[in-house]
């Protein structure tokens, strides 16, 4: 479970969707990287994630990790955003029967789970159908 500093450190990505873009080959990275794995260059410009995309694949988690017990069953998918970034997150506000590969979704800021012992509310992004 995240300690306060570990949680705080990820806030730029989880709250503000901050990414970076390789100045040489234009690939957007999320989370931001220090070296481009494609061209090995180290110059980047700051950017933010495109907030719309489509589902590449999904599953329904029925046996969850402990901190997600009160949410199961829930859907998790990999979504390809319009800027080419692919990321894993829950897909919510949607009946499981309506989920399908190719479905258009958008990124929203939501609560992810409660950290039981210290009572930290852990926030981040989830996908909802457009």
């Amino acid at each position: 479970m995240p300690t306060p500093s570990r949680y705080w450190r990820e806030i730029p990505q989880r709250y503000r969707f901050e990414a970076n873009k390789c100045k040489n080959c234009g690939i957007v990275f999320f989370p931001p990287r220090l070296i481009c794995p494609e061209c090995k260059k180290r110059e980047f410009e700051e950017t933010k994630l495109a907030e719309k995309g489509k589902i590449l694949t999904y599953t329904i988690i029925r046996v969850p990790p402990r901190q997600f017990v009160d949410q199961a069953p829930y859907a998790v998918g990999i979504v390809e955003l319009d800027d080419g970034v692919k990321l894993t997150a829950q897909i919510v506000d949607c009946d499981f029967e309506d989920l399908k590969i190719g479905l258009k979704v958008k990124l929203e800021f939501r609560k992810i789970f409660d950290e039981g012992e210290a009572g930290i509310l852990c926030y981040g992004y989830k996908f909802v159908p457009e």
């Binding site: 990820e10 989370p31 590449l56 694949t57 999904y58 599953t59 988690i61 046996v63 969850p64 990790p65 901190q67 997600f68 949410q71 829930y74 998790v76 998918g77 990999i78 990321l87 894993t88 997150a89 829950q90 590969i101 992810i112 789970f113 852990c122 981040g124 989830k126």
Partner: peptide, 24 residues
Amino acid sequence: QEYEGYHGITFPGLYALIARAHME
């Protein structure tokens, strides 16, 4: 841990994502 586990995905879940994509 920060970009997969944080969102509630499990190991069976990750392979389920592969399975669904392969089936499609």
